[in-house]
Computed example of a mutant assay.
Amino acid sequence: MGNVLKCSLLSLSLLIAVDAWGQIPNLAKCTRSANLLACVDPDGNAYSVNTVGSTLYLRGFEVAGKRYWAQTSSRYGQLTFFTGLASDGEAWVGYSRRVGWTTINRFSSSGGSSGKFTCSRITGC
């Protein structure tokens, strides 16, 4: 009887989880291997993330701007530096610095935008 109850509860929880999954807004569909993550969202935007040691290689396609882009990030202790280039010629640079559970981010681009924002594991960005 105990096993039947466990199986019933497990089946019920799976049904609830599947129902909840159906209510989640459209999320990106991703596939993953040991070092590579590749995703496509419902709008057609696509990106991939490849890790080699402490270096992260990002590649993507942005539907709205109809442009391809690439970004490389390198981590040195609590600092991560990144540089990127898009197919329309825009380039950007920036860094992220971890301080406890907070990340301080700065960036600037050749398109004239720059900024600073802070993210926390508790409150988000």
Results as ranks from 00 to 15, higher is better:
residue 68 Y to W: 08
residue 28 A to R: 08
residue 91 A to Q: 11
residue 105 N to E: 05
residue 20 A to T: 08
residue 44 G to K: 14
residue 2 G to T: 15
residue 87 S to M: 12
residue 78 Q to A: 11
residue 33 S to I: 15
residue 115 G to K: 13
residue 80 T to D: 03
residue 119 C to Q: 06
residue 65 G to N: 05
residue 123 T to A: 10
residue 95 Y to C: 03
residue 76 Y to A: 12
residue 102 T to S: 09
residue 17 A to S: 02
residue 94 G to Y: 06
residue 83 T to W: 07
residue 8 S to E: 14
residue 39 C to I: 03
residue 39 C to D: 06
residue 42 P to F: 15
residue 90 E to I: 12
residue 52 V to R: 10
residue 31 T to D: 06
residue 13 S to Q: 12
residue 10 L to T: 14
residue 114 S to C: 01
residue 112 G to A: 06
residue 110 S to N: 07
residue 20 A to E: 03
residue 43 D to K: 11
residue 81 F to M: 01
residue 15 L to P: 04
residue 32 R to G: 08
residue 30 C to M: 10
residue 48 S to G: 08
residue 18 V to C: 07
residue 35 N to V: 13
residue 121 R to P: 00
residue 69 W to E: 01
residue 21 W to E: 02
residue 14 L to M: 10
residue 50 N to V: 11
residue 31 T to M: 14
residue 22 G to M: 02
residue 54 S to N: 14
residue 96 S to Y: 12
residue 15 L to A: 12
residue 29 K to V: 15
residue 74 S to M: 03
residue 31 T to F: 09
residue 21 W to G: 07
residue 124 G to W: 03
residue 51 T to K: 11
residue 118 T to G: 04
residue 100 G to Q: 07
residue 50 N to A: 10
residue 118 T to W: 02
residue 9 L to K: 12
residue 31 T to Q: 15
residue 1 M to G: 14
residue 47 Y to M: 07
residue 63 V to E: 06
residue 40 V to Q: 12
residue 102 T to Q: 10
residue 111 G to D: 13
residue 66 K to Q: 10
residue 118 T to C: 02
residue 95 Y to S: 04
residue 68 Y to F: 06
residue 12 L to F: 11
residue 7 C to H: 15
residue 73 S to T: 08
residue 97 R to N: 10
residue 100 G to I: 10
residue 81 F to I: 04
residue 50 N to E: 10
residue 69 W to V: 04
residue 125 C to M: 03
residue 35 N to S: 12
residue 6 K to W: 13
residue 87 S to D: 00
residue 73 S to P: 07
residue 79 L to H: 08
residue 7 C to G: 11
residue 115 G to E: 02
residue 67 R to T: 01
residue 82 F to Q: 07
residue 70 A to D: 03
residue 102 T to P: 00
residue 53 G to M: 07
residue 102 T to H: 11
